[in-house]
Amino acid sequence: MNDRFAFTIDGVEVQGRPGQTIMQAADEAGIYIPRLCSHKELAPHGSCRVCTVLVNGRPQTACTQPAGPGIIVENSSEALLAIRCNLIEMLFIEGNHFCMFCEKSGNCELQALAYRFGIMAPKYPYLFPTRELDASHPDIFIDRNRCILCGRCVRASRDLDGKNVFQFVGRGPRKRIAVNAKTALADTDAARADKAVSACPVGAILRKRVGYGIPIGQRMYDAAPIGSDIEAARAHPHK
């Protein structure tokens, strides 16, 4: 196509098209930019900041920042890795993430990023906040202990399911995910097959009666790090 333009990510030349974000162009080029609140089927949110890259030296979220001709993107420097590690570690200490009994373990994107970054333990003290669980619905439940406020369920329910079941309430440390009903999830029109459920990157919104469905060793991130699928698509690997 004629309207393609070139820019670089970590010195590697990448082709972009008008209207593409840096992340979309990177994905096509087989370069993985770590992300958490971003989801292929959803409008970008730019809230988790994990995909922060330097664009011509300035920090920008790759999921929201348009690609442009000639821009110089830095994605995998030590400094950016340190920022991303800090973000992931803060998400771990800010909630109650008991991986050992979480049904999402092995398929969890938060955990997978920690694995990819080689985080052995967070450097910050654990907060152990009090968070509410909502198991009122017959088919799905919300465990806010694991919620990282990425807003994927909000966007998926609104834009894909057309239901508007979830929304944020409160601010700062009291910010939490709420449901569009007087009392509980059971009073909403949320359903088992909703995209809002499958869009959750962690174990905060799960289907009931699934349990530990996949044996250890065969789960999504057991053998290869998150982002490997994108990197595998890269035609000409560069060091």
């Binding site: 771990f92 109650n96 008991f98 991986c99 009994f101 333990a121 967070p122 654990y126 152990f128 906040p129």
Partner: peptide
């Protein structure tokens, strides 16, 4: 060396922390 999740983050016993 902290060995295991209980040493690292409190683990199952830490469920009482809330």
């Amino acid at each position: 060396i902290s060995v295991g999740d209980c040493a690292i983050m409190g683990g199952i016993p830490a469920m009482r922390n809330t």
